[in-house]
Design a protein around this nucleic acid. Structure first.
Lengths: 190, 190
DNA sequence: ATATATTGATTGAGTAATCACTCATTTTGA
DNA sequence: TCAAAATGAGTGATTACTCAATCAATATAT
């Protein structure tokens, strides 16, 4: 079978998994529902992913990769720290709003699934650049000397929260994206 | 049977549930393990809780109640806004560190279990007082006019994160509790 | 004081449903 | 023609929950 077709089928399974995981949570979704949603037989899923846990890990990595690509696009390498931070912030929020299922699922998995170390390492890899910038800026004195991993986690959590609020609230009067960045900047950064 | 004994047994089941939920996640723990841990027969669990879902909801409410009692104790009703906020912040963090299982479980449940509306309402009830203070302070101009529910969620998330960092890091040099409050105060509050 | 009856909690083997995963067979495409 | 991919009925394990039988505590009768 052509390599293209194989990729298509893998992709179809991953996408189906994301959709049903978002709707019911991964603990609560049988593999049979994933294969059904993907339009393949039950057995086919296991031709592509050895176990359900493997599939979950792959879903996680797939989403992280897509996200990283989007976030680094158009990064203002020569801008100020604030510009850089705002770029990441805005991209993250926008990505979350544009891909609510992926956003939900990735959060869900990282909260309540024990990813093995190799998967974790692969997942953080695209973000090392961002972390490097943060460390440099602290050395320059441009950022407060708070622990970088703590800051990163705060940014992540705050962004997740902000996306949830924007999605939940149809009251478009409140600009959570802007407020969120203000809070992050005033509190954590400077 | 004496009313006391009945309460004891219910309590034993709830406590066993918290312990095993913390260790394996609630989706991943059979009711039989809960009853075994509690030292009762499989059937007994269902004399006290109609379904596993009911048990999960009760676990959630039980923890929330305990937490609320602790947090309001010694509340500086006549202090400044900052004092009030810091009191809540410190109590929350301390409670989390003192009750890591409960803390983990309550977070886990609120993230990935669909609580019904009545349960949600019961859970937030003890915290209305805190919300009232926040609203008043905004009217006074003591706090920034950010949406109160957004601020509350940020405080909650930041506290959870902070507890996780303190618990994970044995490096006692870093005072996450203080840093966290600084970030909250500078960013979200004033 | 002792035997008996009543009430309600406790028990755990049993049940039907569900699940992840297998593998012998069939289909596909070159 | 044939190798690789796809299939889905089947399997063994696990699960939430049931229910008839047992047990324990108290009340009543002798």
């Amino acid at each position: 079978m052509a390599a293209q077709k194989i990729q298509d089928k893998q992709k179809a399974i991953l996408e189906a998994a994301i959709a049903v995981f978002a709707a019911r949570g991964f603990w609560n979704t049988p593999t049979s529902l994933i294969s059904k949603t993907a339009g393949v037989a039950d057995g086919t899923l296991f031709n592509y992913f050895a176990t359900k846990d493997d599939l979950i890990s792959e879903v996680y990595l797939e989403i992280k990769r897509e996200m990283a690509a989007q976030m680094l696009e158009g990064f203002p390498s020569h801008g100020s720290v604030k510009d850089k931070m705002r770029h990441i912030w805005n991209r993250y929020i926008e990505w979350g709003l544009l891909h609510p299922e992926q956003f939900k699922v990735i959060h869900q998995i990282s909260e309540s699934f024990t990813l093995n170390e190799s998967v974790k390492a692969q997942a953080t890899e695209p973000f090392v650049e961002i972390e490097r910038i943060a460390r440099e800026s602290i050395e320059n004195g441009e950022l407060r000397a708070y622990p970088v991993d703590y800051l990163a986690a705060i940014m992540d959590n705050l962004a997740v929260l902000t996306v949830q609020f924007i999605a939940k609230n149809d009251d478009k009067q409140i600009d959570y994206k802007a407020i969120g960045f203000e809070i992050l900047w005033n509190g954590a950064i400077r």
